[in-house]
Design a protein around this nucleic acid. Sequence first.
DNA 1: CTGGGGACGGGGCCC
DNA 2: GGGGCCCCGTCCCCA
Length: 481
Amino acid sequence: MEISSHQFHLLEQLNEQRRQDLFCDCNILVEGKVFKAHRNVLFASSGYFKMLLSQNSKETSQPTTASFQAFSPDTFTVILDFVYSGKLSLTGQNVIEVMSAASYLQMTDVISVCKTFIKSSLDISEKEKDRYFSLSDKDVNSNGVDRSCAYSAGWRAESSPPPSHLSPDQGTCMMGGNAWNNLSYYPPSQRTAQQQLSKHEQRQDSGKRSRHMGLQQPSDIPPYKSSKLEDRAAEPAGHSAQPEEQVQMEPEVESSRVGYQYGQGADATPRNLTGSQQERESPHSSGKAKSSKGEEPYRSMPFILGVMGSWAEADDLPRMRFKCPFCTHLVKRKADLKRHLRCHTGERPYPCEACGKRFSRLDHLSSHFRTIHQACKPICRKCKRHVTELTGQVVQEGTRRYRLCNECLAEAGIDSVRIDLEAEAPLEFPPDGDKDSQWHYGEDNRSDVEIVEDGSGDLVIQQVDDSEDEAEEKEVKPNIR
DNA sequence: CTGGGGACGGGGCCC
DNA sequence: GGGGCCCCGTCCCCA
């Protein structure tokens, strides 16, 4: 007979002991803050601690002390709370760092949950647009929507199976073990988006796979130029990291003296373990450590994932401070990482209000808008000649605009009709960041504009006026920035 | 099959 | 430090 609540009570007791500092035999120092915990629990929860403590098993008489600077105390609090409670308190703000720390500590379940959390945060459906915009990562907890999510371990789920509709937006989620696999994570409202994402990812994956199919990864590729290699590792479930990639990465890592330094500059000893632990603590940066038996856990560690640190100022390598948790890509700036992450998450927060197409980057959207909807290129679409206000006109076809020279217009049988651009409201780009704002695309003014359609449909001709067009661009630019 | 257009990701630069 | 813009290279789609 099995009492399902036993595990829960056992962990609860351990957590209580931790709170009361009873039998704690391990001190973890995170940026000056000391956490007390039990070796057994840490050993059972983290591959990193397993390796560390197994190395240190002979010295059981004294408390083990580990020190970290690769993540913040707050992040470790989330991790430790998870270890002792099975609940992972993720928010839009901490998920990246928690995932990074989890990768560091080799807690694959936590990594998986973080990745799922990130994915669940995606919203690329039109339906969810407004809601999505209200949940930008700067205010994910505002607007009355609590995006924090506590994930509970599987044993908890066994005793009280989670409803399948739980989501990060809907309160506590359960995870862990097999139970997590059965969890239908996305709420109905997000499934459409998720399906779209899947489609997008499939397309991206297939494209990229074909793009990089058979790509031999040269060992001398600089680590900071790994963008073309990332995709192989970019698959969301790619934790179990391709062994050959790891093997290839390690020499680079060594030669680059990678340290797990999180925003701490070129600190050569980002995390310190007391006494003889020092050597073991840098399995990736120390050849000695690598050769040790204790390195084995790191060999299987998904090194390519989840480590957000900085490159030491080694040799002539530029400082690459941020590591993509999904792939091997390294970037210098946090903003670049944020931007890069969208290529993994599929997040497309910038919709074109003119055609509905969504973009992952504002500059791509603005580029698309200028190209497709504003006809900014002073080039005849047909003959490719440069056109001016005198030699060509803007043709509007639905929401698309392009330019044709007078000759091509005549060939096409389109009569030249001057349209006063000042009278017509130009297609305007929405103000920066105001994603909810309505674009001024014709809606109000279209009826006022005297547009001339050819017989075939909504083909509209406007006279090209470069000076006005430039003015239009200038008018648009401030909105873009 | 090929070339052009558009999308997209990365990097650099400026504000 | 972050956001936005620009440029470049690559890929996909389509005529």
